[in-house]
């Protein structure tokens, strides 16, 4: 019985949160990796693109709520998501048109584009703070739990409870749908294949009659959709705060690199690797060990390997270890 309790505690505090967080990171990392593969630079503005998308979703959610629209047990934000995606798409296309396209025409070196993306980052960051302010915003509604601790205890009779938040469930489901759609698009459709071809060999893609501007446009559209979805899911699960999205940049880059930059599959794997390491290393294991260990060995301290504030350090160390031993990342991306 104690083992079951340990298992439940483990799921409740480690596995489920890590899966949800990993899905959010994976969606973010997919966007970064697509830009890296096709536009050939690391987009420092990605975190702020996520923030912008999430902000739109928050505003539209508020609007819907004020109109009395709701999505039953699900958060209204899910209804707002498509509109937010459209808005973000418009923004990134505008950015590409006004900013990035010029540098493509100049055949600018990738580093120049990185610096340009810093400028875009400033602007988007300012824009988000300008519109919604720098503070925390809550916008999740609907049913809070798929299964709550009390229900679970009543159901199983276990001492330890298990709670699955609606947002966690939604995160995983939406992430799976997004990833499936993306892979179907990249591997099965003509446009998707042309994007892969362009990423693989730009000159040959041109010689095959692939229009680079179209490829770039589709890339931005997909990135906008992924970033907004990731941003909204993260905001629903935790809360919406512009600065937090900026800080997500590090774990997202780490995920993309750990998985192998330029490899979509790697981005997903990297997201989960980073999320699981962060959560397991910063979790206080006392609760789980209490059940799993015999009474005499029961730990007196919290058994927390690192304080939660060091979660950045975790993604960073994982990154270094992976790069030391497997420089191309877990999945063979472009060599780093």
């Amino acid at each position: 019985m104690d083992l079951f309790n340990a298992l439940v505690a483990l799921s409740n505090f480690v596995i489920i949160p890590a899966i949800a967080y990993g899905s959010q990171l994976a969606l973010g990392a997919l966007g970064v990796t697509l830009i890296y593969g096709i536009l050939r630079f690391s987009n420092f503005a990605h975190g702020d693109t996520m923030a912008f998308g999430a902000m739109l979703a928050v505003l539209i959610t508020w609007l819907l709520q004020s109109m009395g629209v709701s999505f039953g047990p699900l958060p209204t934000a899910l209804l707002a998501l498509p509109f937010a995606i459209l808005g973000t798409m418009a923004l990134v296309l505008l950015t590409d048109r006004v900013v990035y396209r010029f540098y493509r025409e100049q055949k600018a070196k990738p580093v120049i584009l990185v610096i340009v993306s810093m400028g875009v980052m400033f602007i988007m960051n300012g824009l988000v703070r300008f519109i919604i302010g720098p503070n925390d915003q809550r916008f999740s509604d609907g049913e809070r739990f798929i299964i709550s601790v009390r229900e679970f205890k009543a159901l199983t009779g276990l001492k330890e409870g298990l709670a699955i938040k609606t947002t966690q469930g939604i995160t995983v489901v939406v992430a799976i749908i997004c990833v499936a759609l993306l892979f179907w698009f990249l591997n099965r459709t003509r446009t998707g294949k042309s994007m892969r071809a362009y990423s693989d060999n730009e000159d040959l893609a041109l010689l095959s009659g692939i229009n680079p501007e179209r490829v770039v446009m589709y890339t931005w559209l997909i990135v906008a959709a992924l970033a907004t979805t990731a941003g909204v899911l993260y905001g629903l699960d935790k809360s919406f705060k512009p600065f937090v999205y900026f800080q997500l940049l590090l774990p997202i880059f780490a995920s993309a690199i750990v998985g192998g930059l330029g490899s979509p599959l790697g981005a997903i794997a990297g997201g989960f690797v980073i999320a699981f390491s962060e959560v397991t290393i910063t979790y206080a294991w006392k609760k789980v060990l209490k059940y799993a260990m015999p009474e005499s060995l029961e730990p007196s301290s919290l058994v927390q390997l690192l304080s939660t504030d060091y979660k950045f350090a975790v993604s960073f160390v994982i990154l270094i270890v992976v790069l030391l031993f497997k420089p191309t990342g877990l999945f063979k991306g472009k060599s780093v």
């Binding site: 050939r40 630079f41 070196k109 580093v111 120049i112 730009e202 930059l261 472009k334 780093v336």
Partner: peptide
């Protein structure tokens, strides 16, 4: 071309020269 001046930076985490166009 000043836009092509990358100051010799080869940091593969931020710049991806692979498969780029030299045509």
């Amino acid at each position: 071309n000043p836009y092509q001046d990358d100051r010799g930076n080869k940091d593969a985490t931020i710049a991806n020269p692979k498969g780029g166009s030299d045509m």
